[in-house]
Design a binder for these strands. Sequence first.
DNA 1: AACGGTACCGGTAACGATACCGGTATTCTC
DNA 2: GAGAATACCGGTATCGTTACCGGTACCGTT
Lengths: 344, 344
Amino acid sequence: MLNKPPTIKDIARQLNISVSTVSRAIRNASDVSAETKKTVMALVEELNYQPNQLALNLRSKQTHTIGVIVPNLDYVLSMMVRGIDEVALEAGYTVIICQSNESYGREILNARRLLDRGVDGFIVSVSSETNSFDHFKKIQEKNIPMVVFDRVASQLKAPSVRIDNTGGGFMATEHLIEQGYKRIAVLAGPQNLEISNSRLDGYKNALKKHKIKIDPSLIIHCDFNQDYAFFATEELLSLKKRPDAIFTISDRMALGAMLAIKKKGLQMPNDIGLIGFNDEPVLNLLTPSISSIEQPSFEVGKLAAKLFIETMHNMDNIDLSERIIKTKLIARESSLKINAKKLK
Amino acid sequence: MLNKPPTIKDIARQLNISVSTVSRAIRNASDVSAETKKTVMALVEELNYQPNQLALNLRSKQTHTIGVIVPNLDYVLSMMVRGIDEVALEAGYTVIICQSNESYGREILNARRLLDRGVDGFIVSVSSETNSFDHFKKIQEKNIPMVVFDRVASQLKAPSVRIDNTGGGFMATEHLIEQGYKRIAVLAGPQNLEISNSRLDGYKNALKKHKIKIDPSLIIHCDFNQDYAFFATEELLSLKKRPDAIFTISDRMALGAMLAIKKKGLQMPNDIGLIGFNDEPVLNLLTPSISSIEQPSFEVGKLAAKLFIETMHNMDNIDLSERIIKTKLIARESSLKINAKKLK
DNA sequence: AACGGTACCGGTAACGATACCGGTATTCTC
DNA sequence: GAGAATACCGGTATCGTTACCGGTACCGTT
């Protein structure tokens, strides 16, 4: 049973009419009588005709496909991708997900491959290695729609969706201050990532507001990585004047910090406070449970996809304003000094 | 700047030669002189000519695309997908990932959409709702390559890769027995999922081997879900003769069980033992750390992709033998009775 | 009777690329 | 020097679909 799928031509031949008429009948266009339309549709049904997408792609130069490039598929990004997928599917688009693995070269490669696969556009979150944006600018010059999300880069002029990173960093830090912590360290991410620097800015803003001097020795840049965070925390804890609280700009790093804290034999929240960022569900299962900044990742993804579709349908008037989504403080045992005694 | 990308025709026109010659020159085929080849390649370079994939797709009826259908993107499956992606990319294939969200209808829809998007084949893990496999059988009848992985269904005759579920269930259960647990309960997954039943079989085998009577009241089927597992465990713990150990066939369920155990005020491993399945990294961070069965998910994915490519290149002689990958016991505090005292 | 409008349909050229066939020259062979 | 082999190239069909143009009826209007 390997007979090829029927084409519009087969239908035309069988019905003794022209392919154009068949085409029109199927697309329910005008210029075709109700009667012929009926006979065509009957045969379409009988033969189980499906239009050949590949041919349509060639003719229309569209594939109804969105290329999504992400640095990885950690908890946050995979939630966002699910959001993108949800909206895209609804709108009749298929999503191709490529991971750059935080590599600049891989990101370029992904873009190239997606491009000559004929995607209709891009939804992108940049890798931590990426400093130059020429590969994306080239895409924009070709008038191909592109939306950036989560990891936004201000050098890249494109519609964007992200969370309020500065605000989140501020909330986390102020929360620690309000709990009475005095020497607050921060594990920041890679230097050239805006998402990282914005959260760090929030941290600085909070200290300034409460008139606490910023101590550069308490600011550590390292990878978004549990192991790096572990070692960084060990170093922090062995300082002469060790910090009494740590804000890590991702939960993965908070986990590493937690391990280092436990290894050192310190108790949270009394000996030291800890707060992460992202609010991964696991935090609530740990002992002590760990505070964090919650963000609506799924919503970010959905909004990015919606924005993409809007942009796509309105290419001669692109709305470059930033969409910024609020975050929320989730205070748990690891930083709740006052209530901590009650909880015990 | 909206000049269309150059085509083979443009090159031909500029060089005053025919398109066929250009085509041959580009593909480095015979029947073209070294000289014209050089001039063609020079112009190709200059114009930055890229062959139009859409046209090639139509002509060759191939897209170099693999459709991957998974029920969700939890820890295990996303690792597997990463493995697939790795191998596929290397081999020049792009992967389209679709989530069925454990829905039979969605699975059918995904298959349809991927099909008329012209994927070259499928790599599939079935949803928990799926009982009928006609949608996949139809694909096979069209002589389109398909490989199933992880969630395998024996009704579906296709090359497959999965872990040794029965063996894993056996190892987990025997470990509990060896630690001295007597009344071992199991939280099994959905009834119609082979992956679930196989792990349950392993449990039964271990009990039989050690001459322990199987108590149906200790076997509970519920969703792969933390909340369900929580409630199921609460019920188990309120039994008159409550179990002294629980084997959950996924880590997500183990987390739910843990919460119920803690709520009840019981101590692991002495009051009750607990072991999960999958060995998600979080287990090691919990207090107590939770035992599990480790599986090489990334390898499963890679193997699935390799198997797919093999199958694809050898469609008239498909190798239907099952690839089964071994698992490994990771014993931690939640079930290590003997060493537990030392750890304290 | 002549004309304009509408409804319907068919032919053909694209889209971008490759495969096949056939036709020149040039070289080789004896 | 005739015939065969080779090297090189161009024309055309094809993949499946839609856009565009043109043509035939048929109707109603004046």
